[in-house]
Design a protein around this nucleic acid. Structure first.
Lengths: 203, 203
DNA sequence: GTTACCGGGTTGCTTTTTTAACCCAGTAAC
DNA sequence: GTTACTGGGTTAAAAAAGCAACCCGGTAAC
């Protein structure tokens, strides 16, 4: 078991308090309209403490994505024997859809939808999110192997994730429910991964 | 204004958390049946931290009395001009009765009654409470002036406080309400302070 | 009658947090 | 075109808290 003393517990709580304060202020007033000092004050910590937990203002929002950092690489690394990387990635994304995980975009909790809108409509956030995706891509490429082939495949996988998730989110932002969208999301995911496996079929 | 930064606020909260945890555990299981480690764990602080806030286990209970430490001396020191010390003390106690302050014993909140019973029925607590009263007495004597006269008067004042408060508490412990007891408490207080002023009248 | 445990309280060291001051970039005032 | 403010981010020193290990008195086990 990992040692979960007072110190560790309180650190987690502090981190949560900061993140919660940040998200709720951002959702209420918009990213640019909230200063990090406001967040620190709301979370009842000092500004240096805030920055000890989160490197930048953007990370206050994106740590939820950061939690998934390297996930694709991990999925490939931890796949069972006799399972192709693409198969493992496909199954993992599919499982995410089944569970309506926010990363898949297939989640209609108002809070989640508002959160996604916040990210996508705030340039600095969208920009930093891209950086995260590139890191993800690097990690995935590294575990897929050396050479340009692995890099290309990694790039394509991450792109597929991104497009599928944004598509799902867009439909939900348009007012549909996650449950309603789920079937086509699954079909599209299957199609996307099939395309990765076999090419587009264009000559 | 007094500067109330993050540090001061959090220290207060920690102190309150410890004290609250202690009191509620003591009331639930009794003084001896609770270890300071239990209290520290409940308050989510370490044992050394607990002892940085409270010198002894007894003080975890008695800090409420300690908050009134030196109050008698303060009342005398801060009295208006042309007001005799005894008059100031009398008025102050009388005001406490009017407001049903727990120190006067004239308070029937179940929590307060249970708290008093805890103190009076636990020898080590009662003992330490006596120490507090002696400190109070010293402070009062000092402000009343030098000499044996001041010391005697101080001792008598503190004794009066103690007897009046215990009498009030006893009646409430017997099931009467504070409101019901209040009139006689006031009469007795007046009598007690009159006796201090003029002697018992015995020859 | 040792041995071992328990509970109140302490000690030294490390980690975390606060504080106040600062840097730098943008920008509004005049 | 300075001047001054605001906001993101940093630094160094000091306070507070955590941790582990300990002391000491009592008391239960064997």
């Amino acid at each position: 078991m990992e040692p979960v003393g007072l110190r560790a517990r309180k650190k987690l709580r502090t981190r949560d308090a900061i993140a919660d304060a940040a998200i709720s202020l951002f959702l209420a007033r918009g990213f640019e309209q909230v200063s990090v000092s406001d967040i620190a004050a709301t979370a009842e910590v000092s500004k240096p403490t805030l920055f000890r937990y989160f490197a930048t203002k953007e990370d206050l929002v994106l740590h939820r994505f950061a939690d998934h950092n390297g996930e694709a690489a991990r999925v490939v690394r931890d796949r069972g024997p006799d399972i192709a990387p693409l198969t493992a990635l496909h199954r993992h994304f599919r499982a995410g859809l089944d569970r309506f995980e926010p990363v898949t975009g297939l989640n209609d909790h108002p809070e989640v939808v508002a959160f996604h809108r916040l990210v996508f409509t705030t340039p600095s956030l969208a920009g930093r999110l891209t950086q995260y995706l590139l890191d993800d891509e690097d990690a995935l490429a590294a575990v897929l192997g050396p050479g340009i082939g692995a890099r290309l495949q990694a790039a394509q996988v991450i792109a597929v994730h991104r497009v599928l998730a944004r598509t799902n989110w867009q439909r939900i932002a348009d007012g549909r429910t996650a449950h309603d969208v789920q079937p086509e999301a699954i079909v599209e995911a299957d199609q996307a991964f099939a395309q990765l496996r076999h090419g587009t079929g264009d000559s």
